[in-house]
Design a protein around this nucleic acid. Structure first.
Length: 577
RNA sequence: CGGGGCGUGGCGCAGCCUGGUAGCGCACCUGUUUUGGGAGCAGGUGGUCGUGCGUUCAAAUCGCACCGCCCCGACCA
């Protein structure tokens, strides 16, 4: 493509409303433009990258035996009522009515539609397993879209759904997708880790997230430092080694109420009473499916709501409002404790052996010292309810954890029979008995993958595309298009590279060399051929690699071969043989 | 939804406090000189100052309301 004819508006200045590197660069490189909050257009350059990512996904999904379908974005409410998610999904689900006042939504995901499709067509174990996938636009009315295409409301997603006759089969389908995802993100040129994750409102028994490692990632992940163990998980999910063994027996001291006027936070309590955060027990009141619950953790720990939600097995969970706190504890916020609280009490494992601790007094401006389990209050159950800290140890092997940040580009779930039961997706087994299909579902955010790729592959001049997803492989930069010799040579190189099947930009704009070099760097084309008067007089051109900055001066035929080799070398996936 | 910030040519901003002429850089158009890392000179196009109501002789500027956007929290590919 000739640059002079392209719709490629690059921007020199950093847009003021873009925060993350990938967001800034996607706008500056003319890949995307915002239509409205969380809704973006892809311009030609951006869309080429999207199509490259999609193509890699297609190839790997097909290789793994999945088949591509295309399901509707608009979905009837009845299906969602059948699965129970019409009421559960919340405000993220964009709902509307048609002219007959029938209710619909725009699909944020497609478990309902695909389950409906499969239950109507698959009748026997002989037709299983099947894996159907699509690449399609989803809409999730996110509370706060941000970072451009990284977290937006309308976005492209590859979603796949597997249907198996039994659990071992479903495990096999899951493993195949795990393998396919690993190949996909490797081919996209990214460093990633698969980590165990919380299943959220998709549901199911088990899941892995594919995390692209980046300091700017929204997710915290932990890894076991022992390579032989290999445990890795989202911080939300990360299991902490169970209760420690009891320390030296300490005698219980008498409970003592202390006046602590206007002392509410852990920091304030520490300062006022001269105690350490780990000597305090923090009491938070939650409302779980309409019922209050008091949750206890040590003062230096944070409650993990995802763990709490899964432990309590509740659909809705939120911190209690002020009036509920007053009602349950008898005091305003800041003085809640477990003694005499009008709610079930659950506590983190770390409390099991605590003695003589400080906690809220359930009375305004009072705390208590020397509180003790059993003697002063009862805990209904102990569980792992908090976030891991750098002091914690791996639950599997006892080694220390390492912390990192990542961007969730893919998520695979073992759904089990959640949807097949709710929607009666059944088949007849070889004995003629009706059985529920065992499902899995597997998502990849397309735009997010492209954005994550930029987060990992850029420098201060712009994007550095891996060859496999680059919008073009080569850009030819004649230093001066008004020089007829340079123009002619550029056209020849352009034609020759196209003939070799490469995707090429010829920067035929009447701009100064510096402008063209900067644009080429910004949009991140992996290889640049510079054609200038001095080299050309010797029949030579320069080939520069974007990533390394390495420049080779070569005669034209040698340059063509070098470029072709570099292309093959980088797109070739050696890592899988 | 709660907390914070911002809306002024396409982009980045100043002006607002202390009401009275809309201004700067980049981009864009014309001419000219230039041509290997974002050129120089000369001339030029383009703005309902987010929207509405109010205060005032007079509002980008003061007040109120609304809308939009960005950042921080609960969601997720």
């Amino acid at each position: 493509m000739r640059y002079s004819e392209m719709f490629l508006p690059t921007i020199r200045e950093v847009p003021s409303d873009a925060e993350s590197v990938s967001h800034q660069l996607m706008i500056r490189a003319g890949m995307i433009r915002k239509l409205t909050g969380g809704i973006y257009s892809y311009l030609p350059l951006g869309y080429r990258v999207i199509r490259k990512v999609e193509q890699i996904i297609r190839e790997e999904m097909n290789r793994a035996g999945a088949q591509e379908v295309f399901m509707p974005a608009v979905q009837p409410a009845e299906l969602w009522q059948e699965s129970g998610r019409w009421d559960m999904y919340g405000k993220e689900l964009l709902r509307f009515k048609d002219r007959h006042m029938r209710e619909f939504c725009i699909g944020p995901t497609h478990e309902e539609v695909v389950t409906d499709l499969v239950r109507n067509e698959i009748k026997t174990y002989r037709q299983l397993p099947r894996n159907l996938y699509q690449i399609q636009t989803k809409f999730r009315d996110e509370i706060r879209p941000r970072f451009g295409v990284m977290r937006c409301r309308e976005f492209g997603m590859k979603d796949a759904y597997s249907f198996d006759a039994d659990w071992p089969g479903a495990d096999k389908s899951y493993d195949k997708m795990f393998e396919a995802y690993s190949r996909i993100f490797t081919r996209c040129g990214m460093k990633f880790r698969a980590v165990e994750a919380d299943t959220g409102n998709i549901g199911g028994s088990f899941s892995h997230e594919f995390m692209v490692m980046a300091e700017t990632g929204e997710d915290a992940v932990i890894f076991c430092s022992n390579p032989g163990c290999g445990y890795a998980a989202n911080l939300e999910k990360a299991e902490i080694a169970g209760p420690e063994s009891p320390g030296a027996a300490e005698a219980m001291k008498p409970l003592e109420e202390v006046h602590t006027p206007d002392v509410r936070t852990i920091e304030e309590v520490c300062a006022f009473l001269g105690v350490k955060a780990e000597d305090i027990v923090k009491t938070l009141i939650f409302v779980c499916d309409g019922k209050p619950a008091a949750v206890l953790v040590r003062g230096d720990h944070e409650i993990n709501e995802a763990k709490l939600r899964s432990y309590l097995k509740c659909d809705s969970l939120e911190l209690a409002a002020d009036d509920v706190v007053l009602n349950v504890t008898g005091s305003p916020k800041g003085f809640a404790g477990a003694i005499g609280v009008k709610a079930d009490v659950v506590a983190d494992y770390s409390l099991m052996h605590m003695k003589n601790f400080v906690m809220g007094g359930n009375r305004e401006d009072y705390h208590v010292r020397n509180a003790n389990l059993e003697r002063d209050f009862r805990v209904k159950a102990f569980a792992d309810l908090r976030f891991a800290t750098p002091l914690d140890r791996c639950a599997r092997c006892g080694s220390p954890f390492e912390f990192a940040r990542g961007i969730e580009v893919g998520h695979i779930f073992k759904l089990g029979t959640k949807y097949s039961k709710a929607m009666k997706a059944v088949y007849l087994d070889s004995d003629g008995h009706e059985q529920y299909m065992v499902m899995g579902c597997y998502g990849i955010g397309i735009g997010r993958t492209a954005a994550a790729c930029i987060e990992q592959n850029h420098d201060d001049k712009g994007i550095i595309w891996p060859m496999s997803v680059a919008p073009y492989h080569v850009i030819i930069t004649p230093v001066n298009v008004n020089d007829s010799g340079l123009a002619k040579a550029s056209e020849e190189v352009y034609g020759a590279l196209l003939a070799r099947g490469l995707e090429v930009i010829l920067d035929d704009r009447d701009e100064r060399a510096g402008v063209k070099f900067n644009d080429a760097d910004l949009i991140g084309i992996p290889l640049r051929v510079t054609i200038g008067p001095k080299r050309l007089a010797e029949g030579k051109v320069e080939v520069r690699e974007r990533k390394s900055g390495e420049t080779k001066v070569l005669a034209v035929p040698a340059a063509l071969d070098y470029i072709t080799d570099a292309f093959r070398r980088e797109v070739d996936i050696k890592c899988f043989e």
